[in-house]
Simulated scan of single mutants.
Amino acid sequence: MRSATAAASTAPDIYGLCLAAQRDLGPYIRATPLEPSADLARETGGRVFLKLENLQHTGSFKVRGALNRLLALDEGEKKAGVVTASSGNHGMASAFGMRRLGIEGTIFLPETASPLKVRMLETLGATVRFHGSDCEATETYARQQADRTGKVYISPYNDPVVVGGQGTIGLEILARLPRVDCVMVAVGGGGLISGIAGAVKALRPQARIVGCLPENSPAMAASVKAGRIVAVPARETLSDGTAGGIEPGAVTFDPCRTLVDDWVLVSEAEIRSAMIRVFDNHRLVIEGAAGVTVAGFLKMAPQLAGRTVALVVCGGNIDTAVFKRIICPTGDPAARRLRR
Rank of each mutant, 00 (worst) to 15 (best):
T127R: 15
T138I: 00
T44W: 07
F130P: 03
T84H: 03
G190T: 04
D254W: 14
R129A: 10
G167V: 08
G170W: 02
L55G: 00
G241R: 08
G227L: 05
S133K: 07
C212P: 12
V185E: 02
A269D: 11
R129T: 01
I196C: 02
N158P: 09
T293M: 01
A186E: 08
I271D: 12
V294P: 02
D280H: 07
V294Q: 04
V185W: 00
G288I: 02
L238M: 15
H90F: 15
V251E: 14
V266Q: 02
K51F: 00
T168F: 07
R2S: 12
R204I: 11
P156A: 07
G211L: 03
V285A: 03
G188N: 06
A335E: 07
I318M: 04
K151G: 04
T32K: 02
F323E: 06
P302C: 13
D332R: 10
A93E: 12
S239I: 08
D159K: 06
T138R: 03
G198I: 07
L259P: 11
T10N: 04
G227R: 08
V200L: 03
S273E: 15
L203H: 12
G167I: 08
A199V: 13
T252L: 10
G167Y: 07
R143I: 13
A93Q: 09
L338R: 15
A11F: 05
T140D: 09
E139S: 07
I107L: 13
G291I: 01
T258V: 06
S3Q: 11
S194I: 06
T320M: 11
A186F: 06
L25H: 14
V185F: 03
L265N: 10
C314Y: 09
K78S: 03
P160M: 13
E236Y: 13
E247L: 15
N216F: 01
V163N: 04
A80F: 15
A85L: 09
G296Q: 13
D319Y: 09
R277Q: 14
T127Y: 01
W263N: 07
I286A: 02
E104H: 15
T112E: 06
A269W: 02
E53M: 03
P156F: 05
E122Y: 01
V251P: 13
K62R: 06
G189K: 10
M300H: 05
S155I: 10
E35S: 04
I286R: 01
T252H: 15
I271E: 14
L338H: 13
G59Q: 02
I173A: 01
T140E: 13
G132W: 01
A199H: 11
V232L: 08
H57D: 01
